[in-house]
Each structure stands twice: as C-alpha cells, then as structure tokens.
C-alpha cells in the first residue's frame, strides 16, 4: 500500500521524539504500519534525535552502575528477529492490540445518526485525548467531531472526499486545528476512519493563558 496523504512533518518529529499523546500516537503508529514513506521520515527524524543525544554533555556514570550492568550480562538472553507482522493487515497492528475483536464488523458499534456509527477505542485513563472509530455510510457526510483541538484521521476502509481531495485506505488527514473541512463518504461502501482528538491544552487569549495554571487545563 502506498498512501497519498501523509503525516505533517511536525507530527513526524513529535512521534520520533516520543512526545505525542496516546490518542494521536495511536493513529500515527497505525499509519506508519501502512506507510513506507512516513516510516522513512521517522527514521530521519530519529537520526536527528540520536545526534541531539550524542551532543549532550556527559553525565558521569558511577562505577556501581557499570559494575551492575556488566554483572547482568550473564543472565541476559539474546533476542532473535521477530516474525514480521502482515503489513497489509485489515486492521493496523497498533490499533488491533486495543480492540476486543479482530474483525471491525464485529465491534459493538453505536449508532449516532442515520448511516453513522461510532466505537470508542479504550485508552489509558490518563490519556489526554480520545480515539474513535467512525463508520460512515455511502454518500453520508462525516459528522462534526470536536473543534479547537488537534485532530488526526486515518482511513481504514472505503474513502471520503473533501476540498483537499480523495482520502482512501491508508491515507491520513493531519490537519491544523483551524482548518475546517466537510468530508463526504464515497458511494459504493462504508468509510471507516480512525480519529484521534486531543483537547486544546491552552487558551488563545493572553488573559486566559494567565489563568491556565490556576484552572489546571
């Protein structure tokens, strides 16, 4: 599979740095499982991380730490190459690990509107954002789902169109929070999307920003 729409480069860097919230991280990892181009981009960003670490000032390591590490080598076992997962699996590996069933059709979908169903993917209690699976019937518009936050969408099956073009299986919509779009599912079959929404973590006005530490958002 070679997706046509990819992750924003700032998202690639944040993933490589390991600083994404679990919600967005899940959608990003799922796209990576399907996208050789973004995997190459992550490798380049990781090389940058390696170089940044390499240039850090040394922190003296105690003799005890060295001795303990060397003493543990005997008990350690060499890992062998794992069997590679199926790259084109119907559900990308990082998502599959969080679903109760292997087949998306068997999920307990909740009907939200005519032709639209939702399934909430269960994340850790401390995750800042949410991840939802959306199933949109042919020709239906994708419903509004949260504004003013970060949002990343991955198409798992079917396709939708908006003013940015056609988004099919494997494509990712990694949009700035101020971009508005009205996607419509293509005729011919359901469109299933994986959507991460991270609530805004800061207010825009200066006064509100001053209050931010007080209200703990």
């Amino acid at each position: 599979m070679t997706p046509a729409h990819h992750l924003d480069h700032s998202t690639i860097l944040a993933y490589a740095a390991g600083t994404l919230d679990e919600s967005i991280g899940l959608v990003v990892a799922s796209h990576l499982a399907w996208c050789p181009q973004c995997r190459a981009a992550v490798r380049a960003a990781e090389a940058l991380g390696g170089e940044l670490m390499e240039q850090l000032p040394d922190a003296a390591v105690s003799d005890g730490c060295r001795a303990r590490t060397m003493a543990m080598l005997d008990g350690a076992t060499l890992h062998r190459f794992p069997a590679p997962p199926v790259a084109d699996a119907a559900v990308p590996g990082p998502l599959a690990r969080l679903l109760p069933v292997a087949n998306l059709d068997e999920l307990p979908w909740k009907k939200k509107a005519p032709g639209v169903a939702i399934y909430d993917v269960k994340l850790s209690p401390t995750a800042k954002g949410q991840v939802k699976l959306l199933r949109i019937g042919p020709g239906r518009a994708v419903p509004e789902h949260g504004h003013g936050g970060e949002e990343v969408t991955l198409i798992l099956s079917g396709a939708y169109r908006d003013h940015m073009g056609r988004f099919g299986r494997g494509d990712v919509a990694d949009l700035d929070e101020d971009i508005e779009h009205k996607p419509v599912a293509e005729a011919g079959g359901d469109c299933i999307c994986l959507v991460a929404i991270e609530r805004p973590t800061r207010f825009k006005s200066f006064a509100a920003r001053l209050m931010q530490p007080l209200v703990g958002i």
Partner: peptide, 15 residues
Amino acid sequence: REAPMPLVELGDYDE
C-alpha cells in the same frame, strides 16, 4: 508509564 505513546517497530514493516 500511565499514558504510554504507542510505537511501531519500524523494521517489522519494511519490505
């Protein structure tokens, strides 16, 4: 540990 970021083993997926 409480809210880990999901990771993929990049090499597992490379052709």
